[in-house]
Design a protein around this nucleic acid. Structure first.
Lengths: 252, 252
DNA sequence: CGCCTAGTTGAGGTAAGTCAATTCACGTGG
DNA sequence: CCACGTGAATTGACTTACCTCAACTAGGCG
């Protein structure tokens, strides 16, 4: 089963309320359910003809393996996230996606996506917006690895993840359940596992946050936000639909 | 003037040949020419209602300023690149774009872009593909900063830039003209200027590449590729149009 | 000439990595 | 029940890649 105490309906974090018909289209996209046990690849680097997926339950991560053997995790995916959108455009996928827990996804073939997007332009806009937000997160991630020290970097990451989880009802300012181990954190943040361990201890001793055995507990949320220089603006893009005339005004 | 010896026609690196009508649409997009002197912001972080731009001549970079005052450059833009595509979707731009040399851009208002995209769906596909390639580059950049040491990182960057320049006729395997100073390289690669300097010296002493006063000279291109673990696959996505039925098969 | 910016080099400090040992939680099977 | 194995977390001792500070050089330009 998943990580949460209560099962939730499959959601799509569009950042905007959706209509009944859009919900129906979205539901119809979710017909091809597939389960993956922990540690399996949903998308593989170098793979051709990849599909898109909606992560219904469980966690995953997208990562890249370098020629020197190292691994860099680009993003942690939580329930409601779209996976592999970019793989549709690129000939071969430039990254892999792997499950972090047992997970349930809905596979979305290119043709189905076409139908859904044609029937619900607002859904298309939501997709584009979702992709944009992913890229904004990638940019923030890049900045963090390039220009924040390990303490700030870990703190910022825990806050970003928490903020995303709050938006889908899986976390509060008190904390959240978190299946990421220190190896995954290390590959995400460009650090070694032992240094992640030391940094987490430091953050705990400073009274900001306690990370332990599947749980993240914010001991001083406001203090941590200040310490990390966390600004959620790049996650809080609202109502993008009005800004996309060529999608919302289709079929004149 | 620009950096190149011969002026070139405004191009759009779509990775695919374009038809006459598409070229015409593209030309019409380029009517609102604007010049920026070196060091000016074309797009500003936090700005609302940003437009998109086509970089016609000169170089620019997109970057993010962190709360701690540090700067991280996400991408270097060369002639033919689209700028600020994502700013159209996000309410406020999450990054800035600044000129590195005197530059000429074509401003593309949202409405014009709408018209162009409607009239030439292949152009829309090219835009999406361009955005995808940008994100692939961002991912590679992230991986480099997170998991490559400074030597590999600098080497890889010089090769990536060279490869992009070759595709638009501004470079060869022998080298290219390059207006990036060591401060810009540092902010791009997550290093300090002095360390960039030492790394460049090391790469020169190893016989791989010489970087000096506006020029990058590959002394041993193949050796550098091997040393950096450079694989151009993520830049070499060809003919994406076939993979986007909902754009190329419009208007049945 | 004097100022400015970019580049270069040295000396010393520190954040993070490496290597290695220990503990802990947990299953699993004798 | 306990021995055993395994993967994750923890901690210590030591190394190193990169940073900081600071001085100096070289070129462009009013």
């Amino acid at each position: 089963m998943g990580l949460r105490d209560r099962p939730t309906e499959p959601t799509c974090d569009t950042g905007d309320a959706i209509t009944e018909t859009e919900r129906a289209v979205l539901e119809s996209l979710c017909r091809d359910r597939r389960s993956f046990r922990v540690g399996l690849d949903i998308v593989r680097q170098g793979q051709t003809q990849a599909a898109a997926y909606l992560l219904v339950d469980g966690w995953a991560c997208s990562y890249k393996t370098l020629p020197n053997g190292a691994r860099q995790i680009a993003n942690i995916h939580i329930p409601g996230d779209f996976l592999g959108l970019r793989s549709l455009l690129l000939q071969t996928s430039d990254h892999s996606v792997e499950t972090i827990t047992d997970a349930v996804v809905s596979r979305i073939a290119t043709q189905e996506l076409y139908a859904a997007v044609s029937g619900a332009p607002r859904l298309a806009a939501a997709l584009l917006w979702s992709a944009s937000r992913d890229e904004a997160m990638l940019l923030e991630h890049l900045s963090g690895i390039g220009r924040r020290d390990a303490l700030e970097r870990v703190a910022h990451f825990l806050l970003e993840l928490g903020t995303r989880l709050m938006r889908v009802g899986l976390g509060t300012r008190a904390g959240y359940r978190c299946p990421l181990n220190q190896y995954i954190l290390a590959d995400t943040l460009g650090l070694t596992p032992v240094h992640v361990n030391r940094v987490l201890r430091k953050l705990r001793e400073m009274g900001y946050v306690t990370v332990r055995a599947g749980d993240v507990v914010f001991d001083d949320f406001g203090g941590l936000v200040a310490f990390a220089g966390f600004e959620a603006a790049y996650l809080d893009q609202t109502s993008p639909l009005a800004r996309i005339p060529f999608l919302s005004d289709r079929n004149p």
